[in-house]
Each structure stands twice: as C-alpha cells, then as structure tokens.
C-alpha cells in the first residue's frame, strides 16, 4: 500500500522542517535535563512546549502532505501514474506518523542523555517516565496530525486546510492556557484533547493516564482514516 517513490519524495520535501523542529526540541529538552531533575522538569516542560512543537509540525506538514499538492496542482503528476489515491494517503500518513514518532524518540533520547550527563543522574524509573511522557507526546501529536491530515484530505485550498485543521489544533492548545485564568474558565480544560495527555498523572505514576493516550491514538487514527476515505472518493481540481 505504500509507494516508495512518493515516500522518498515526501521525506525530501519535509526533511528540513523536521530536522529544525526536532533539533530545537532536542536541544531544549537536553538543556532542561541538564539543569533540573526529571521529576521536577517533567510537568513544567511537557505540559506546554512540546505540544506546541507537535502542533506546528502537524499543521504545516499536514497541509503539505495532501492539500498543498492539490492546491498547487502538483498531485496531478502523481495521479497521472498508476499510483492509487489510497496509496497516496497511506504513504503520506505513514510518513506523518513515522516522522512524529522519530521526533519524539529522539526527544526522549535527548532527555535521557541530558539527565545522564547531569549531576542528577538517570535511574531506570526515570527512563520509564521519560518514555511514557514521550509516548504521550507522540500520541498527542498523532491526534493533531490526524486532524490536520483529515482537513488536508478534504479541502482543495491551503487556506481552508490551515483555517480548519490549524484552527482546531490552536484552539486545543490555547484552551488549557485559558483555563488557567481562574475558576470561571476551568471548564475549558474539558473542551480540549490536550487534557487527554495527562502529564501530572504520568509523572505521579497514577492510574488513568493510559486510557487518555489510547483515546488520543484513536482520535488520530479515526481522523486520518476518515480523511483518507474522503480523499479517495472526492473530486480533485487537478
């Protein structure tokens, strides 16, 4: 179902953005780990910044993977060959998921490396915490990616994709921040999927965080599958 030629081309097209975002993230988490123990740094760091990075990546790359190619018309060349539309969406989705996973894996590695080199040291429990945090981060990104990918599959114009997919992701990222402005806004925490990535619960090794992540995974998969389904059935202005 995957198309190797398309995958190679997609990797080439997105390599720069991925490298920059991943590199910056790794440097940040590395320096955080150097300066604070994992137990302390976890909540402060994972609650906000990486989610924003994942959001930026999902919005930009999500649009590029399908919609931008339709908007610019370059997809005509791919679909003028015996490549199925389903193969296009599957390949692009595989790249999306894979690149996010790699981003989070490298982030986890950088975190562990930073901790190991710091004066605080790195225990087996720490590694587990970091891996769980980054798994959650990956699934949050995965859900964002699914939403942006679905928008990318459905719309012909970049601006509509960015407005819809990007708008949702931004709203999800901003709502928890709004919720911090007092009791009256606290309900907003329940309106965002970001809450399904429960960083304090992961840090505290308390129960329940796992199912939130499962939900995120399912949101991403369902949105992506729905987008792909729509893409294979709709008219393309190529």
């Amino acid at each position: 179902m995957l198309n190797a030629a398309l995958l190679k081309q997609t990797v080439r097209e997105n390599a720069v953005l991925w490298t920059v975002l991943t590199g910056v993230q790794c440097l940040m988490v590395f320096s955080v780990a150097m300066n604070a123990p994992i137990a302390a740094a976890g909540v402060a760091y994972y609650n906000l910044l990486p989610g924003i990075f994942a959001g930026i990546y999902a919005i930009t790359v999500g649009n590029r993977l399908i919609c931008a190619k339709v908007d610019r018309g370059t997809l005509a060349y791919v679909l003028a060959t015996p490549v199925r539309r389903r193969a296009v969406t599957t390949t692009q989705a595989a790249f999306f998921g894979g690149s996010l996973l790699a981003m989070c894996a490298l982030g986890a590695a950088a975190h562990c490396a930073g901790a190991a080199l710091s004066s605080f040291g790195l225990t087996g429990a720490d590694v587990r915490t970091v891996l769980e945090l980054n798994l959650g981060l990956f699934l949050l990104g995965w859900a964002f990616a699914g939403i942006c990918f679905a928008a990318s599959c459905v719309f012909n114009l970049t601006k509509h994709t960015i407005a819809t997919g990007g708008g949702l992701v931004c709203a999800f990222l901003l709502l928890p921040i709004m919720a911090m402005f007092g009791q009256n806004y606290a309900f907003m925490r329940h309106l965002t999927i970001v809450s399904l990535y429960d960083v304090p619960a992961i840090m505290a090794h308390s129960a329940g965080w796992f199912w939130g992540l499962v939900a995120l995974g399912m949101i991403g998969a369902a949105a992506g599958a729905a987008g792909s389904w729509a893409f294979t059935r709709r008219d393309l202005p190529l």
């Binding site: 190619k69 018309g73 370059t74 005509a76 060349y77 003028a80 060959t81 015996p82």
Partner: peptide, 14 residues
C-alpha cells in the same frame, strides 16, 4: 494510468 500519458492544463512541478 499504465496506459495513459497526461499533460495537465496548468503546469506545477513538485
């Protein structure tokens, strides 16, 4: 598409 060659009306390269 195995049997079709196509020139699109608007040329936009990848």
């Amino acid at each position: 598409k195995r049997h079709i060659g196509h020139i699109p009306g608007e040329i936009a390269f990848p």
